[in-house]
Design a binder for these strands. Structure first.
Ligand code: MN
Ligand code: MN
Ligand code: ZN
Ligand code: ZN
Lengths: 157, 157
DNA sequence: TTTAAAAATGGAAATCATTTTCATTAAGGA
DNA sequence: TCCTTAATGAAAATGATTTCCATTTTTAAA
């Protein structure tokens, strides 16, 4: 968590201000949690992590902030089909860590993978180009996910 | 819509009975609507189509039936991110019509595409094989979607 | 520093697709 | 036809997310 006495010094201060957003305590704390989180957090997960130390940041603000962060491209909003959105920090310009997800339909575990990304990106580019032309569709984004059973869950079965 | 006098004669009668399910009027009608539908219908879409002629088939039954049909693999449950599930008839063994979707984030229009499916399938197989081995993850399913703006929506902008 | 406009906030209430409950009905084997 | 059990519909419950609105905070101007 950021020290309360050096607010607004993070590298993302500029990103906020540049888009007319104000960098508030709530936003900074949420961003901080996300940037340090391992997995894929739901709004409530974030609320739980923050609440003990910042009991006056409400769940509503978390939802609103996550929307803003998604708009700014600082966070990805993910849907693994369990009825609640998950959020993931979009690494800065340095660690642009393009990856996709393996989702276990047994226990909802999610594995990040980067394997085959090169071939994938190649196919994706080709596909995007072709589809853009054929359907006059401007593709801005893609979603690739694999579903199945993780090691533990296939053993159980 | 099926004629009321020849119930249970459809090619899917066996599929139901084989899995211990009963073939009811509601299920038959829902399947019929889906098999003839062009696009991607929500539960309520289906309800609207059915209700005039079969006013005693409730929305609850539609949800339940769609679950059954998904389990049987006769229908695909889709999520285009607009907060309601969509359903699509999974063509029988004949017209196995593997395709993915272009989703317009402007107007929610969805385009089916089959282009590049061959290269895609090849990459997918390779990826699935590699990931299965590396993570001991049994992949049963994949999701690929492209998001962007359709022709009309990019003009508007 | 003072001030005023705009943005952000939190808590409560609303939304709304989907699920659950439960009493009733219908399917299909015997 | 009879009986067991699956299937059904209506109403109520659920639960993640959004909306409302009165209050607070931020920021730029004076
Ligand atoms: Mn991830
Ligand atoms: Mn389709
Ligand atoms: Zn699992
Ligand atoms: Zn569009």
């Amino acid at each position: 968590m950021p020290r309360g006495n050096c607010r607004g010094q993070g590298w993302w201060h500029g990103k906020f201000r540049g888009c007319g957003y104000r960098l508030t305590l709530g936003r900074e704390v949420i961003l901080d949690v996300l940037s340090k989180a391992e997995g894929h957090l739901s709004a409530e997960d974030i609320y739980m992590k923050i609440h003990p130390r910042y009991p006056n940041v409400g769940l509503t603000t978390i939802y609103r902030t996550l929307d803003v962060l998604s708009d700014l491209g600082m966070v990805f909003k993910l849907d693994f089909g369990d009825g609640r959105a998950r959020y993931e920090f979009a690494e800065g310009p340095k660690g642009a860590h393009h990856h996709h997800h393996l989702v276990c339909t047994g226990c909802n575990k999610v594995i990040d993978y980067t394997d085959f990304i090169d071939d994938e990106v190649e196919l994706l580019n080709q596909t995007e180009k072709g589809l853009s032309k054929k359907y006059n569709f401007k593709i801005t984004n893609h979603l690739i996910q694999f579903y199945g059973l993780c090691e533990k869950c296939s053993e159980k079965k």
